[in-house]
Amino acid sequence: MSGLLGAKVVITAGGGGIGAAMARAYAAQGAQVALCDIDKAGAEAVAADLPGALGLGTDVTDEPAMEAFWDRALDHLGGRVDVVCANAGIGGPVAPLAEIAMDDWRACLAVNLDGAFLACRRAAQVMGPQGSGVILLTSSTSGLFGVPTRSPYVAAKWGIIGLMKTLAMELGPMGVRVNALCPGAVDGPRMERVVAAEAQARGMTADAVRALYAEGTSMRSWVTAGEIADMAVFLSSDGAKHVSGQAIAVDGHTERMT
């Protein structure tokens, strides 16, 4: 992809899964990456494999911790940021709304939505005066549909879409593009935990739940973290220089949710 050699990239939740795949994909294009993750060891391990990368343990719901991460990242990247991937998220509780505890609701929204706000606020403060940049928020196909037993997660991921749309309007005149990635079911440990929770809540086997996810797509398949990262790289490149304000699904075309 053009335009990413020497780019400065910040990624939240970069210590595993989609975030780690993003970090590797950007580095493969010649970008320099600063990433954080609640899993400090994971963040450090991913960064250690990438040239000139920084990896820090950070709780994206903790405002002072996020400001400290941003300070370190900007110092490491020379004061400039070209791409920000607000990627942190958790699946949250799996249960009917009537059975969800307030603390569990708040915890899910805090990581998914508050974390995105804190990442994007500092990105806007840097990129606006800079007059350029790309912000990518990780939503989900759950940000496009309703999903029974997943109300906190769905509410947060729909909120991500609204945040993205508004930020695209605010920053577009300054030369900053903002989009949201909407992954479908992504192979990996995180979705395996979601599948296990849904299987228990529904009285089904994990294999049956996995099959339902695949059957809900036109392509009858799951996607990989690498495929999400490939789309992130494209959206950050000159090839997407007029793509902004979009919720872009990488999901094999979801027809219905489980």
Score class of each variant (00 low, 15 high):
residue 31 A to D: 04
residue 124 A to M: 09
residue 244 S to Y: 00
residue 178 V to G: 04
residue 47 A to I: 08
residue 112 N to A: 13
residue 63 E to D: 12
residue 76 H to L: 07
residue 139 S to E: 04
residue 8 K to C: 10
residue 153 Y to L: 12
residue 253 H to N: 13
residue 209 V to C: 06
residue 180 A to F: 00
residue 168 A to Y: 00
residue 113 L to K: 07
residue 73 A to C: 07
residue 235 L to K: 01
residue 94 V to P: 03
residue 118 L to M: 10
residue 106 R to V: 00
residue 171 L to S: 05
residue 88 A to C: 09
residue 83 V to Q: 03
residue 206 A to E: 15
residue 183 P to G: 06
residue 109 L to Y: 05
residue 149 T to D: 14
residue 202 R to N: 13
residue 39 D to V: 06
residue 78 G to S: 08
residue 258 T to L: 13
residue 249 A to E: 02
residue 177 R to P: 03
residue 74 L to F: 04
residue 233 V to N: 00
residue 172 G to S: 10
residue 220 R to N: 11
residue 26 Y to G: 07
residue 154 V to Y: 07
residue 47 A to M: 09
residue 153 Y to H: 14
residue 252 G to P: 02
residue 66 M to R: 04
residue 118 L to T: 01
residue 68 A to Y: 01
residue 208 A to I: 03
residue 171 L to F: 04
residue 63 E to V: 11
residue 225 A to I: 01
residue 185 A to C: 12
residue 17 G to W: 01
residue 16 G to P: 01
residue 256 R to K: 13
residue 187 D to C: 10
residue 217 T to W: 01
residue 255 E to T: 08
residue 198 E to R: 15
residue 79 G to A: 09
residue 79 G to M: 09
residue 233 V to P: 02
residue 33 V to M: 08
residue 253 H to C: 10
residue 177 R to H: 02
residue 189 P to G: 05
residue 201 A to C: 15
residue 205 T to G: 15
residue 110 A to E: 11
residue 24 R to I: 03
residue 57 G to H: 03
residue 238 D to A: 13
residue 52 G to Y: 06
residue 216 G to Q: 04
residue 5 L to E: 13
residue 228 I to S: 00
residue 2 S to Q: 13
residue 170 E to Y: 04
residue 163 L to M: 15
residue 151 S to P: 14
residue 1 M to K: 02
residue 63 E to M: 10
residue 121 R to H: 12
residue 53 A to C: 12
residue 36 C to H: 03
residue 62 D to L: 08
residue 61 T to R: 15
residue 13 A to I: 07
residue 141 T to E: 13
residue 166 T to Q: 15
residue 181 L to V: 00
residue 123 A to N: 06
residue 155 A to S: 15
residue 175 G to I: 08
residue 208 A to E: 15
residue 109 L to H: 09
residue 140 S to Q: 05
residue 256 R to S: 12
residue 204 M to H: 14
residue 256 R to W: 10
residue 120 C to R: 03
residue 6 G to N: 10
residue 161 I to G: 06
residue 195 V to G: 04
residue 134 V to R: 10
residue 196 A to K: 15
residue 43 A to R: 01
residue 103 D to H: 08
residue 17 G to F: 02
residue 64 P to S: 10
residue 142 S to M: 14
residue 252 G to S: 04
residue 192 E to H: 12
residue 158 W to M: 12
residue 44 E to Y: 04
residue 170 E to V: 09
residue 207 D to P: 10
residue 206 A to M: 13
residue 120 C to D: 11
residue 195 V to M: 10
residue 24 R to Q: 13
residue 209 V to P: 08
residue 53 A to Y: 07
residue 245 G to Q: 05
residue 252 G to W: 01
residue 50 L to G: 03
residue 250 V to N: 01
residue 231 M to L: 15
residue 79 G to Y: 02
